[in-house]
Amino acid sequence: MTAPTFDPDQRWRLHPQVAVRPEPFGALLYHFGTRKLSFLKNRTIVEVINSLGDHPDVRSACRAAGVEDSQLSPYLHAMSVLVASNMLIAGEDR
């Protein structure tokens, strides 16, 4: 099974089997289905992940967390890695 293609202009959300544990450095994500562990290395990305359901797409979630368009690249890369590891899944349109 291939991972979905990451599109930052699409709605994404945490997989229902993923738990987020805040840490001083950011957070740990644990997928209970695959038993994969991911590290989020700053609090801004944690804020973005936790607010995905409140925004129509990843870019909007990043902007709401204070990430300027010129700073988007590492955040979009992190999201694409989380999509590839099944930590994030496509969200439903409202």
Results as ranks from 00 to 15, higher is better:
residue 19 A to V: 15
residue 83 V to M: 01
residue 28 L to E: 14
residue 9 D to L: 10
residue 28 L to D: 13
residue 38 S to Y: 07
residue 57 D to K: 04
residue 21 R to K: 10
residue 3 A to E: 12
residue 89 I to H: 03
residue 90 A to V: 14
residue 84 A to L: 05
residue 16 P to L: 06
residue 26 G to Y: 05
residue 45 I to E: 04
residue 38 S to V: 07
residue 5 T to G: 03
residue 2 T to Y: 06
residue 53 G to C: 10
residue 38 S to I: 05
residue 38 S to Q: 14
residue 51 S to L: 05
residue 26 G to C: 09
residue 44 T to D: 05
residue 57 D to N: 15
residue 17 Q to K: 09
residue 69 D to E: 15
residue 38 S to F: 07
residue 52 L to M: 12
residue 85 S to K: 06
residue 44 T to L: 09
residue 93 D to V: 13
residue 77 H to W: 11
residue 2 T to E: 15
residue 34 T to C: 04
residue 23 E to M: 15
residue 56 P to Q: 13
residue 41 K to I: 07
residue 43 R to Q: 15
residue 51 S to I: 09
residue 36 K to Q: 13
residue 19 A to Y: 04
residue 19 A to H: 06
residue 58 V to C: 12
residue 48 V to L: 08
residue 56 P to T: 09
residue 93 D to F: 05
residue 79 M to F: 09
residue 5 T to F: 04
residue 45 I to F: 14
residue 36 K to N: 09
residue 42 N to Y: 04
residue 14 L to A: 06
residue 52 L to I: 12
residue 53 G to N: 14
residue 40 L to W: 01
residue 84 A to V: 04
residue 5 T to C: 05
residue 94 R to P: 15
residue 20 V to G: 01
residue 39 F to S: 09
residue 18 V to L: 01
residue 59 R to K: 13
residue 85 S to I: 01
residue 75 Y to R: 02
residue 51 S to G: 12
residue 41 K to R: 11
residue 39 F to P: 03
residue 47 E to R: 11
residue 14 L to Y: 02
residue 3 A to V: 06
residue 45 I to Y: 03
residue 48 V to E: 01
residue 64 A to Y: 03
residue 43 R to T: 13
residue 54 D to A: 12
residue 89 I to T: 14
residue 41 K to T: 14
residue 66 G to W: 10
residue 5 T to K: 07
residue 2 T to N: 10
residue 14 L to T: 03
residue 42 N to H: 11
residue 41 K to Q: 10
residue 72 L to V: 09
residue 90 A to D: 05
residue 32 F to E: 14
residue 84 A to M: 07
residue 34 T to I: 09
residue 8 P to D: 05
residue 67 V to N: 04
residue 49 I to K: 00
residue 53 G to I: 07
residue 60 S to Y: 02
residue 24 P to T: 10
residue 77 H to V: 14
residue 58 V to Y: 04
residue 75 Y to E: 02
residue 55 H to Y: 09
residue 94 R to G: 11
residue 24 P to E: 10
residue 63 R to M: 08
residue 25 F to M: 12
residue 67 V to Q: 04
residue 91 G to Q: 02
residue 65 A to N: 05
residue 92 E to H: 10
residue 2 T to S: 10
residue 10 Q to N: 11
residue 65 A to K: 03
residue 8 P to L: 04
residue 47 E to P: 02
residue 44 T to I: 15
residue 8 P to K: 02
residue 32 F to R: 15
residue 70 S to N: 10
residue 4 P to F: 01
residue 73 S to W: 08
residue 55 H to F: 06
residue 48 V to Q: 00
residue 92 E to V: 12
residue 13 R to Y: 01
residue 61 A to R: 00
residue 80 S to F: 00
residue 92 E to N: 13
residue 10 Q to G: 03
residue 89 I to K: 07
residue 7 D to L: 02
residue 34 T to E: 05
residue 7 D to S: 08
residue 63 R to S: 09
residue 12 W to K: 00
residue 24 P to C: 08
residue 80 S to L: 03
residue 70 S to D: 15
residue 91 G to S: 08
residue 88 L to H: 01
